[in-house]
């Protein structure tokens, strides 16, 4: 517990000692903010037009700010996460291996699990700040409109769970190589495939389609964005996270054996 705390604190600090945290947070806010502006502005334009042209209401259905702004916004946040998370996680073990600090870390009285969980929590901390930066957008919606806060809450819960899964996968990729670029590319590719694999579901047969759907990130996120917390989705993200944290542990252990 103690070691976990020290590693967590050190990880968080070193994200801010280097430009990594600032770059990641800035890019995330810029991309999601830009998207938010676009969708919110087009929603307001459409609402004005609908006042004079009732036909539009028939075309779009009910004008609901949650449906029209919040849900797509969460969708885009998850896509930006897909790109940004590998940059956050790539250094966790790859850098230590490259610079040799791994040799010292492994000779300290620290369990592999403590090192991995410390680094995982460090990334989660930055990720939490990242999500926090998107929160003012929700306040803006609240100021101008009337969003459903329950949906916002489940949306954030879903994002946090998905983020945890992304981070654990990224840490695993970082633990199998000492090259940060390779770690980032491998994580990005695997996240991307897991994100898109659900799209194939319609083309595949019944059984295969359902399996593909089940293993895809986006399929499980969709319900969170609609305000539904389904146990099967929660279990999916939790298992995914635990599995990759476990694999990272194995990977560290094997590193020891290979010398």
């Amino acid at each position: 517990m103690r070691n976990f705390f020290f590693i967590f604190a050190k990880e968080t600090k070193s994200y801010f000692n280097s430009p990594v945290a600032f770059v990641v947070l800035t890019i995330f806010s810029a991309l999601t903010g830009y998207y938010f502006y676009n969708i919110f502005a087009s929603f307001s334009t459409l609402s004005f037009q609908a006042q004079t042209n009732p036909a539009l209401i028939n075309q779009y259905g009910a004008f609901n700010v949650t449906e029209f702004v919040i849900r797509p916004f969460f969708g885009i946040v998850s896509v930006v996460m897909l790109i940004i998370m590998p940059m956050l996680t790539m250094r966790s073990f790859a850098e230590e291996k490259k610079t040799g600090t791994m040799e010292l870390l492994l000779t300290f009285p620290v369990r592999d699990s403590e090192a991995i969980l410390g680094k995982f929590a460090g990334c989660m901390g930055i990720f939490a700040i990242m999500l926090g930066l998107s929160f003012p957008a929700m306040l803006l919606v609240e100021y101008f409109g009337d969003p459903e806060w329950a949906v916002i809450a489940t949306g954030y819960i879903g994002l946090i769970m998905m983020g945890a899964a992304f981070i654990s996968l990224g840490i695993f990729m970082s633990s199998i190589t000492e090259n940060q670029i390779i770690a980032a590319v491998l994580s990005f590719a695997s996240l991307m495939i897991l994100y898109m694999v659900g799209y194939t579901a319609g083309l595949a047969g019944e059984m295969v389609g359902r399996v593909l759907e089940y293993i895809s990130f986006s399929f499980h996120y969709e319900k969170f964005a609609r305000g539904v917390v389904d146990t099967s989705d929660v279990v999916y993200y939790l298992l995914f996270t635990i599995m990759f944290l476990f694999l990272s542990m194995r990977s560290l252990e094997s590193k020891r054996w290979r010398g």
């Binding site: 070691n3 705390f5 050190k10 600090k13 000692n17 610079t99 040799g100 010292l104 000779t107 300290f108």
Partner: peptide, 30 residues
């Protein structure tokens, strides 16, 4: 590992940390 101090040949250190912060970190882990 609790009872040893080890200085590897390459002296791998976290270059982005200040000296006391680094030593505090190691002290915590040890």
């Amino acid at each position: 590992r609790r009872r040893i101090g080890y200085l590897p040949e390459t002296v791998p250190l976290y270059t982005d940390m200040q000296v006391p912060a680094y030593l505090k970190y190691v002290a915590g882990l040890k």
